[in-house]
């Protein structure tokens, strides 16, 4: 840690310290932000990330909501056995979370990594 924030203005790509930030909006970064590839990458990934986040929130808080407001429903027996609907839903939430992360990773490994590589290439670095 040899540099401090006040000294700012250096190009963070050359800085060893993440604490260094530009005082003004750096034209170099504005240029990157304006490239179509960057916009596509960030737009798609952000949207996808929030959609999946939303799904997770709905599923999980749906489950919690049932625990809070409809305990009787979760106590319902499945197939006339001992196991309750709540049990299946609970395990289902766990499996769903795992599948969701898997979906994201597959898409990120393919589409987003390709876009990032394309952007890096086009910047000549």
């Amino acid at each position: 840690m040899t540099t401090s924030y006040a000294q700012g203005g250096a190009d963070p790509r050359l800085a060893r310290d993440p604490g260094v930030a530009a005082v003004e909006s750096d034209p170099q970064f504005e240029r990157i932000i304006r490239t179509p590839t960057f916009r596509t990458l960030v737009h798609e990934r952000t949207r996808f990330g929030w959609i999946l986040t939303g799904l997770m929130l709905v599923v999980y808080f749906g489950f919690i909501g049932l625990i809070a407001f409809d305990k009787a429903l979760l106590a319902t027996k499945v197939g006339g056995g001992t196991a309750s609907l709540g049990l299946f839903l609970g395990v289902g939430v766990i499996v769903f979370a795992f599948i969701l992360t898997g979906i994201y990773v597959v898409r990120a490994n393919g589409r987003y990594d390709a876009l990032t590589a394309e952007l890096t290439r086009s910047l000549g670095r």
Binding site: A15, R16, A21, V23, S25, F29, L119
Partner: peptide, 25 residues
């Protein structure tokens, strides 16, 4: 105001990792 202006640099790096490799050398 300075901090809001500095968001671009952070934004590019957080989304793409450009600039990160050097900091992690």
């Amino acid at each position: 105001r300075r901090e809001r202006a500095a968001f671009d640099a952070q934004y590019v790096r957080s989304e793409t990792g450009i600039g990160a490799s050097l900091a992690h050398a």
